[in-house]
């Protein structure tokens, strides 16, 4: 009931009016989520169903976005592929950001040698570009959705930890934290009541920004054959193999999944930027 209260609606309307690009990004993401959730209802064909009488069919009323080299409906595979993209994206970015928060706050609050030790480890991970680290992890562990999520989660952890640590260091110096210390509040209470709520803004911004990166990473690794395996529908997989070989004969095989990846990353970045602007008090001045 609260979620439909006039205050919430007013905030939403205000966000849309002040940040239309972010709202557009949010709308695209919402459509993606609905499409993924209702894929089994919306999809006109089974995404795994082959049709050898309809190989490489261009977009038509029967196959809205055409078919691939096995006669599989590209639109249905795109819808189910959104499930894979969102599931991997949400899981990896949430896990990465959540673990990063724990490490960042621990590092900032403990200080001293613990902070030094944790930060040097984070430095090691940060020295690798995201894609290189993810590639290395998935090359060792092998493909599959679980390993893919793990491989994408790991590079996100130090990035979140570094940002959250800097926010937590500021909050740790605040008078109300000193006051809490002076009245003998336990560390856990200080962390959960005073520090954690105050780092939620950067946490949410990073969480949103990571979604787009995670989707792109999932697609990249699947494209390289190191992520999700056929016949699971996934956007990166749809771009791989036949889509490249048959690019001249059946350009739709590569165009639509490529467009879906670009659009989703664009939408998450728009929303992330707008959330950062809306939640960062310094940008409200």
């Amino acid at each position: 009931m609260n979620s439909l209260s006039p205050t919430w609606l007013a905030s939403l309307v205000r966000f849309i009016r002040r940040r239309p690009l972010g709202a557009a990004g949010g709308a695209i993401i919402l459509v993606m989520i609905i499409a993924a959730a209702l894929a089994s209802v919306i999809a006109p064909h089974d995404p795994l169903e082959t049709n050898y009488a309809a190989l490489f069919k261009p977009p038509s009323p029967e196959f809205w976005l055409g078919t691939d080299g096995f006669g599989r409906d590209a639109f249905s595979r795109l819808l189910y592929g959104a499930r894979t993209a969102l599931f991997v994206g949400f899981s990896a970015s949430f896990l990465g950001a959540a673990i990063g928060v724990v490490i960042g706050i621990t590092s900032a609050y403990a200080g001293g040698n613990i902070d030094l030790f944790i930060e040097r480890i984070m430095d090691v991970f940060l020295s690798f570009p995201i894609i290189v680290l993810a590639l290395a992890i998935v090359a060792v562990l092998g493909g599959g959705i679980v390993n893919l999520i793990f491989a994408i989660t790991i590079p996100f952890i130090p990035r979140t930890a570094r940002v959250i640590r800097s926010s937590a260091l500021v909050i740790r110096q605040m008078p109300y934290v000193d006051a809490a210390h002076s009245i003998g509040s336990p560390d856990a209470r200080i962390i959960f009541r005073h520090i954690l709520p105050n780092v939620m803004a950067p946490f949410l911004v990073m969480l949103t920004a990571f979604q787009g990166q995670a989707i792109l990473l999932e697609a990249s690794l699947s494209f390289l054959g190191l992520g999700v395996a056929e016949p699971t529908p996934a956007w990166g997989l749809m771009l791989r193999g036949a889509a490249v070989t048959f690019a001249e004969r059946a350009p739709w095989m590569g165009f639509f999944p490529g467009f879906a990846i670009s659009l989703s990353v664009f939408a998450f970045n728009l929303l992330g930027d707008s959330l950062r602007d809306a939640l960062d008090p310094r940008l409200r001045l």
């Binding site: 795994l48 082959t50 092998g142 056929e230």
Partner: peptide
């Protein structure tokens, strides 16, 4: 990709037709 990936897709599809649920591990 050549010719393993399309063959894997084809074979898995054939097995689906007799009720087998097959995942692929291309590690």
């Amino acid at each position: 990709p050549e010719p393993y990936e399309p063959t894997g897709i084809f074979v898995i599809d054939q097995w689906r037709k007799v009720g087998l649920n097959v995942k692929q591990n291309a590690a």
